[in-house]
């Protein structure tokens, strides 16, 4: 397989992923690693907390807005925005796979009202079966917490659909391409 074909294939998945998100009414931004800090700054509602970003070449310390890394429980409780990366995107569903661990990505993605998720374009797969396969590998590598997250938390238990139940009220996905 030539490089250009591989590139086209990936961009098909990114397009499908963005389309699925838009259909769900989830905000999606496509950017490059270099421009990601600017995009994030525009999306953040302070105060913000952030987890270490493992999958995208972006450092939250580079942002002009303050993002508290490894917050205290109180800082987490006060935060309006939580920023994490995703280990995968699943194009068919507009889902991201959040991986938790001892650094606290799971609470950062769960407690603040706004969740900003960075996902690397190359980590977007087309279908659920491929996604679950990758999660299975990650579990075998010793990671214990994965959440396939699709849109904000929601409930219809109070008589009609409300976004923002126990989890975030809004989710913004930032797709980061290599260039």
């Amino acid at each position: 397989m030539s490089r250009s074909v591989l590139g086209e294939r990936m961009s098909t998945e990114v397009r499908a992923f963005s389309r699925a998100l838009s259909e769900r009414g989830v905000r999606v931004r496509e950017t490059t690693a270099a421009e990601a800090p600017g995009v994030l700054e525009a999306e953040i509602e302070p105060p913000a907390v952030g987890a270490t970003l493992d999958t995208v070449p972006v450092d939250l310390a580079d942002l002009s807005v303050q993002v508290t890394h490894d917050p205290t429980p109180q800082e987490l409780d006060d935060a309006a925005t939580g920023i994490t990366d995703a280990v995968l995107g699943i194009a068919d569903y507009g889902s991201v796979v959040l991986r938790g661990g001892p650094e606290g990505a799971e609470p950062v993605s769960l407690y603040p009202d706004r969740h900003l998720v960075l996902v690397r374009a190359a980590d977007i797969v087309q279908d659920m079966q491929t996604g679950i396969g990758a999660i299975a590998d990650s579990i075998r590598d010793g990671h214990r917490s994965h959440v396939i997250a699709t849109g904000p938390s929601a409930t219809a238990d109070m008589g009609e659909l409300v976004e923002g139940a126990h989890g975030p009220r809004s989710v913004t996905i930032v797709v980061v391409s290599a260039e």
């Binding site: 001892p102 917490s145 959440v147 396939i148 997250a149 699709t150």
Partner: peptide, 14 residues
């Protein structure tokens, strides 16, 4: 799909 499909391998380490 529902908002969350949690795949926890407990005890979780968050």
């Amino acid at each position: 799909i529902t908002s969350y499909i949690s795949l926890f391998t407990p005890p979780t380490d968050s």
